[in-house]
Nucleic acid binder design. Structure first.
Lengths: 353, 353
DNA sequence: TACAGCCTTGTAATCGATTCCACGAGGAGG
DNA sequence: CCTCCTCGTGGAATCGATTACAAGGCTGTA
């Protein structure tokens, strides 16, 4: 593959001049510029990004370490991150931690070794020494969706408290009084926060959240199934199961079906994180929708601000309730739109890009 | 960040010796090795992958350019590619072409500039000059899922012909005679092949495929909706709609619902590419399942073979029919397993990793 | 004792870019 | 006509690694 030397030779100038043309530095004569451009064209020359990075100490690459690519929420996040990064002239390397701290560390280490300019993380756990050291050492970093308390890193996330209150009010109005939650790992902020928001909202309605109604999941489908089976085995099973993420909701639906029970007649179901498929399940699932695309874009902007020397801002955007039929009929379903679809998350809008 | 020079100074040896220790070259004394390792530890030194790549001319990175990350089929493919690559000591950079040739070119160019060791592509179109040149110039490359005819590049894909024959036989047995297909872009191999396989299978049952029953989609949900609406407006609408991918099937389902019609009573629906959600839709959707994970792994193995100087092999694996309820009841649903779930693609198995 | 050969080590070239610095040519001003 | 600037250009250092080559020390054998 042709190098800058070949171009210089072909154009009859020095490599310095070629470099200046390529980085459109002002002091190059029109004549030299033309000859260089012609040589570049003739040789099909493309600058070696590796060499350039070594010299300039910047790779124009962002690292994104997410908890689980197979989760549609994170897939969409990854997509919007890549789009915004591309618009700002950066590439993105995605690392899939699969909710495993060791894998998360592997990816962080690899990305750091590659000298990425900045790191976007949705931490799987309370924070490995590796990641904390990197943050302290000054690696530009932004947390997205989940974060680690006590670390001085901007956070871009959705606040679900109001939406959870709306959800609980909705369930209360439908007559439900025994409400259970499938929680995420306590080590993650989203894992514990959602339980707290739920407990608080229940309190406001004068309802208590007994320990038996808090199941411990891990944000994956299988745990949703297991926890739900536990709930159904209780002497007094809950009337509603609220899953702290979409995959666990899927597992819960499986478990309910496997018993031959029906949603919402025998038990109601709701989920955190809305996805296009929830419109098409049987029944369509009531969920709390995050402004996923906007979160991804905001996170990239914050990170690039930090990289390019501007002051990054933490961002919190509101999530909102999308009522469908999985908690029972109520005549109020018109609240959030004609068919219960949200703008940003509908399959319809998604595919028009 | 500490460099190899700092380590050399700290250990009281030359950089050459440090490098030899790090790459466990045989001729290093035990004493020197210990001192170097201690210095590495003390400084928290990590080799700069950028510098190493420049010198060795290999990045230990693979590029993966796929047509649409939001499509669960490709998400799973990406996941398995990353896993196998990691096992073989490579990283993966994913580029999302979003079914747009210009974006595909952008990613290919960026990846080439970064001097990735090899490229895995699921082409969006017939092949841009850029990609063809790269292949001819000797860039290690492997096509996965889709390919470009006439280019000397190994292909890893699933053969759906047999499964399509099974599907058509199944539909025929259920009494359906007017069968339509939502095709993918003709520029993609999967776009045209699936139509051909469908037409051939229909022929074997003595059924004809009129042009009016071939709708032109683009592998995205919106096109599935549009095409299906066209089918429903026909004087004699089809009894079955077969979508050439999962997203278009979703759009078709939307369109049918919007008319107040029901699946499978009013119209039957089947799809190419099975995904975990198809179990949970209303009704569960009959689909042709590809061995996605195995395809991703085989593709990486072929590419790495090529990179490391071994002869890469093309691989074709069979797809298979998974019967559910979207084409009508038939008592034969036990054919493919107790609940119509496939092993590899079920949400249940997915989450156990 | 002398020499061959092995083991260990360091010096320096190299990969492909960017960029500081010096230099020569040419124009403006005194 | 001389000086001073500006402009365009090239030489060479540099980024952080790897690795060819040379050289020194040691052992073993004649």
């Amino acid at each position: 593959m042709a190098s800058i030397k070949d171009v210089a030779a072909e154009a009859g100038v020095s490599v310095a001049t070629v470099s200046r043309v390529l980085n459109d530095h002002p002091s190059v004569s029109a004549d030299a510029r033309t000859r260089v451009l012609a040589a570049v064209e003739a040789l099909g020359y493309r600058p070696n990004a590796v060499a350039r990075s070594l010299r300039t100490d910047q790779t124009r690459t962002l690292g994104l370490v997410i908890s689980d690519v197979m989760n549609p929420y994170f897939t969409e996040l990854a997509r919007s991150v890549e789009e915004e990064a591309r618009a700002l002239g950066y590439s993105v390397i995605i690392g899939n931690a699969d909710e495993r701290p060791d894998l998360q560390d592997h990816h962080v280490r690899t990305l750091l070794d590659r000298r990425i300019d900045g790191l976007l993380v949705s931490p799987t756990d309370g924070g490995s020494p590796l990641m904390l050291d990197a943050a302290r050492a000054g690696t530009p970093m932004v947390f997205v969706d989940r974060w680690i308390p006590g670390v001085d890193v901007p956070v871009v996330r959705a606040d679900g408290r109001a939406a959870v209150r709306d959800l609980v009010a909705h369930l209360h109005r439908l007559g439900h009084r025994r409400l259970a939650i499938i929680a995420g790992p306590a080590a993650t902020t989203t894992g514990s926060e959602r339980v707290e928001a739920f407990r608080e909202a229940l309190g406001a309605c004068g309802i208590d959240l007994p320990d038996a109604y808090i199941g411990q999941g891990d944000f994956k489908a299988e745990s949703g199934r297991r926890v739900t089976e536990g709930f159904l085995d209780l002497p007094e099973p809950p009337e509603v199961v609220f899953a702290a993420d979409n995959l666990m909701a899927l597992g819960a639906l499986d478990a309910v079906r496997a018993r031959g029970l029906r949603v919402p007649d025998d038990i109601a179901l709701a989920a955190f994180d809305d996805i296009p498929w929830f419109v098409h399940t049987d029944p369509p699932i009531t969920a709390i929708a995050q402004p996923t695309g906007e979160l991804g874009r905001a996170a990239v902007r914050a990170l690039v601000d930090r990289i390019e020397g501007r002051a990054p801002r933490s961002v919190t955007l509101p999530a909102r309730l999308v009522v469908r039929r999985s908690c029972g009929e109520s005549g109020e379903s018109a609240r959030t739109g004609a068919d219960g679809q949200s703008g940003e998350n509908s399959a319809r809008n998604r595919s028009q890009s």
